[in-house]
Design a protein around this nucleic acid. Structure first.
Length: 476
RNA sequence: GGCGCGUUCGUCUAGGGGUUAGGACGUCGGCCUCUCAAGCCGGAAACACGGGUUCGAUUCCCGUACGCGCUACCA
């Protein structure tokens, strides 16, 4: 068995999206599983749409995910000589021919053809031009495209995922492999690149399934070894349509800035179309490398589901040590609470990671650990602190807190409960207003934990402020 | 239109000639509880349709419908 060599070959014409990441992931996992190589090839042969910034964004994303590629990046735009050589060879061996038909004319013919040109095929006008005529037109400087001659027969190949695929050659039009401006087209270029890169397994989206027979034709005609193919089903948006800009945060960087962990995203993505033979759902990358194989890949397109992503994200957060989470948060936002004590931050992260789904949520839902509330949730204020009576209760309770010498979760809880018992009220009558006073919002971690972390001075100060501002009496 | 591919709960999926069609997310209900989460327990929820083959088909075959892809001098 030859050592496995695979590639991920995005074109830098847009942001990397979920589908692209999954293709990269499956390639990477396959390579790692077989101790092979994973290459990155930038398909930048479309100078109009290709952009340097997308190229950089793609590389950044892959690195962020930890999907590191082997060797230097291959740029198609720098490999023109090989494509030209291949085209020349096909011309010389008579496997391809020059076509002098102008694009405009072909376009017009197509439009005039029945059924709006859907059935239109290249009529073979230039297929059998004599050598003399070709020379004459060449000498006149007529531009020409190069088309592949399609032999009779049937192309069949065994897709690692879809199984046996057979297509009659007669279904394939004599397609262009070199444009009249001299630039090679996609199907030619992929084949030449994959050959020279020594690619053994072509793993890509199933939108290429029907391109494969054309490419096999080129492999044959060029005398190249044909690699194995594996086509991955598409990922669709919630509307069951192809993933696109319309689906909001489709560009993968957006997920990053929303505070998802890369390994959580990969974990989610790997289950879109694949499953191990276990009921385990949460995996590390290493585990995936060990378990991954192509046999269990689905043929059906999968729909992206944010709910499940969130769940997986939460699971990964719980498993991750607070230190690691904090440094991820720092990558997201270096400014976040940077003046605060590190241990204090770690404690907060430790508490919050169990209850939240993303890094961003940790940042946005933790303000009360640092800042005194500037306002109180109105609904909760009405419900939990509806009358002056609460103020008296809080006042008394504050007096009790003042004299506490040790400020700990356990003591705070027993103190509060004792206090309520003495008064014959349920402890929630006090807990809720205190929570509101301390955080301004109705929910958060355990009240006693919060109190301990905030410390005596802060708690008393916030309670005092609340006494001044609550209850809210303004009608609305 | 032609060709290729696909179709199991809302979603991701397991399964495969005889199963109470399994799990997960979500959802609903309960427990726990200082709130929100988490956790635990329980419920509802699927084999696209029509024909074969067969004692039996969700599973195999053929159609139909629907969806996706390709059908470009895009990649």
């Amino acid at each position: 068995m030859k050592p496995v060599r695979v590639r991920f070959a995005p074109s830098p014409t847009g942001e990397l999206h979920l589908g692209g990441v999954r293709t990269a992931l499956f390639n990477w996992l396959f390579a790692k599983h077989h101790k092979g190589k994973f290459f990155l090839r930038i398909e930048d042969t479309d100078p109009v749409r290709s952009r340097k910034e997308y190229e950089e964004q793609i590389c950044d994303s892959l690195k962020w995910f930890g999907l590191q590629w082997d060797g230097p990046i291959v740029f198609q735009s720098q490999r023109l000589v090989d494509y030209k050589a291949a085209i020349r060879k096909l011309l010389e061996t008579g496997k391809a021919f020059r076509c002098f038909c102008s694009p405009d004319k072909l376009e017009k013919d197509r439009k005039q053809a029945p059924k709006g040109g859907r059935d239109y095929r290249y009529p073979g006008t230039c297929k059998n031009l004599s050598l003399e005529e070709q020379k004459r037109r060449l000498n006149q400087g007529e531009p020409f495209a190069v088309r592949l001659k399609i032999p009779r027969g049937v192309i069949s190949f065994n897709d690692q995922i879809y199984g046996n695929i057979r297509v009659k050659n007669s279904e394939i039009d004599s397609f262009i492999i070199s444009r009249s401006n001299g630039s090679p087209t996609y199907n030619l270029v992929v084949v030449v690149d994959d050959h020279f890169m020594g690619i053994t397994h072509v793993i890509r989206g199933d939108d290429h399934l029907t391109n494969t027979p054309k490419q096999i034709l080129i492999y044959k005609v060029l005398g190249f070894d044909i690699p194995k193919f594996a086509h991955l089903p598409m990922i669709l948006g919630p509307d069951k349509r192809r993933l696109s800009k319309r689906h909001g945060a489709t560009g993968i960087q957006a997920f990053r800035w929303q505070g998802y962990l890369p390994q959580a995203l990969l974990n989610y993505l790997v289950f879109l179309g694949w499953n191990p033979d276990t009921e385990q759902e949460i995996f590390t990358l290493d585990e995936l490398v060990r378990k991954f194989h192509l046999q269990q890949v689905q043929k059906k397109a999968a729909i992206y589901d944010e709910k499940k992503l969130n769940w997986i994200s939460g699971q990964h957060m719980v498993q991750m040590p607070a230190e690691a989470l904090l440094s991820r948060i720092r990558e997201l936002n270096p400014e976040w609470r940077k003046e605060e004590n590190e241990d204090y931050l770690l404690k907060i992260v430790e508490i919050q990671k169990k209850r939240l789904k993303t890094l961003s949520e940790i940042m946005t839902h933790s303000n009360f650990f640092f800042d005194d509330p500037t306002s109180y949730d109105l609904k909760t204020a009405r419900k939990r602190w509806g009358s002056e009576g609460v103020n008296f209760l809080i006042q008394d309770f504050m007096a009790r807190l003042e004299i506490m010498e040790e400020w700990s979760v356990g003591l705070l809880e027993s103190e509060l409960r004792k206090f309520c018992e003495e008064r014959g009220i349920s402890s929630s009558k006090l807990i809720h207003p205190v929570r509101l006073a301390l955080s301004g919002v109705p929910h958060g971690p355990s009240l006693f934990l919060m109190m301990e972390m905030l410390g005596k001075v802060t708690c008393l100060r916030r309670l005092k402020t609340a006494l001044e501002k609550l209850p809210i009496t303004v009608e609305s």
